[in-house]
């Protein structure tokens, strides 16, 4: 019994320490974001490459998933709305469901699976190979050169890809609105524009930025905690990805609370 309580206590303390460490790292990164010296030619080159690998390379797959998944979901939602006689709330439900909830969530899951794991492994490998030490030897700040482009890329990519998902899903909704409600393109567009709430879009934007920030920051921090053994790499990636998914759930819950206020 005592052992169990000790274990619970130790886990709680470790989790609190991890959470505090992540927040501290986050504040350091945020402070650097607004410093001019962070943005060297080298950093900008890395940023462009990161945006290409995260947002541009995934475009075909992401577009296909957005159209297929978005269409299916929109179709199901429309059918439910019709069956429940809630046609007058169509616009609000679409904007609230697709723009504020679905787009950021699906986007962040895809990017977390693809990019967060890659970043985590990359930083851990660089730590094991002493490449981080190389950068320090040559007075290259790892935060400016390595971390900042990846984190900024996370924010930019989640925002842009989430917007793309919303556009594609809402566009596919046009087809279902015609099939299920007999709605014309003009009426559908009118319904959407009238339902577009500035507050929803701001919440969605803040949510995307927060998602993008933490799904890159957490893997970087986890990669840095790798030791100099090769076997520490998969452990670092495992811990990093678990923390990423916990962060996604936490941010989602916090955003729901914010919306309900």
């Amino acid at each position: 019994m005592t052992e169990l309580i000790e274990r619970i206590g130790k886990t709680s303390m470790d989790s609190t320490a991890t959470f505090r460490d992540i927040l501290s790292f986050a504040f350091t990164i945020l402070a650097r974001m607004f410093q001019k010296k962070t943005y060297s030619s080298a950093m900008k080159m890395v940023l462009v490459n990161q945006i290409y690998f995260t947002s541009v390379q995934i475009l075909p797959l992401f577009t296909a998933i957005s159209i297929i998944f978005g269409s299916l979901l929109i179709g199901i939602v429309f059918q439910i709305i019709k069956n429940m006689g809630l046609a007058e709330y169509l616009g609000r439900i679409l904007m609230g469901l697709v723009v504020t909830e679905l787009s950021p969530f699906i986007t962040v899951l895809l990017i977390a699976l693809r990019s967060s794991s890659a970043i985590n492994a990359e930083i851990a490998v660089m730590k094991v190979n002493k490449e981080l030490r190389t950068l320090d030897t040559f007075n290259i700040d790892v935060i400016d050169y390595l971390f900042m482009p990846r984190i900024m890329n996370g924010v930019v990519s989640v925002v842009l890809l989430s917007a793309l998902f919303s556009i594609l899903a809402l566009t596919s909704g046009m087809l279902f609105s015609k099939l299920i409600f007999g709605m014309s393109f003009n009426v559908y567009t009118n319904v959407l524009l009238k339902s577009a709430d500035f507050y929803d879009i701001v919440i969605s934007l803040i949510k995307c930025c927060t998602f993008g920030f933490f799904i890159t920051l957490i893997p970087i921090r986890s990669g840095l905690h790798a030791s100099y053994d090769l076997t520490s790499i998969p452990v670092a990636v495992l811990h990093g990805m678990v923390n990423v998914f916990i962060a996604i759930v936490l941010i989602e819950v916090l955003s729901l609370i914010l919306i309900s206020i």
């Binding site: 190979n129 490449e131 190389t134 040559f138 007075n139």
Partner: peptide
Amino acid sequence: KQTLGLISMDAPLIS
């Protein structure tokens, strides 16, 4: 440190 150009196995190339 400001002017050091180290060539060492402890400062490998970025892979």
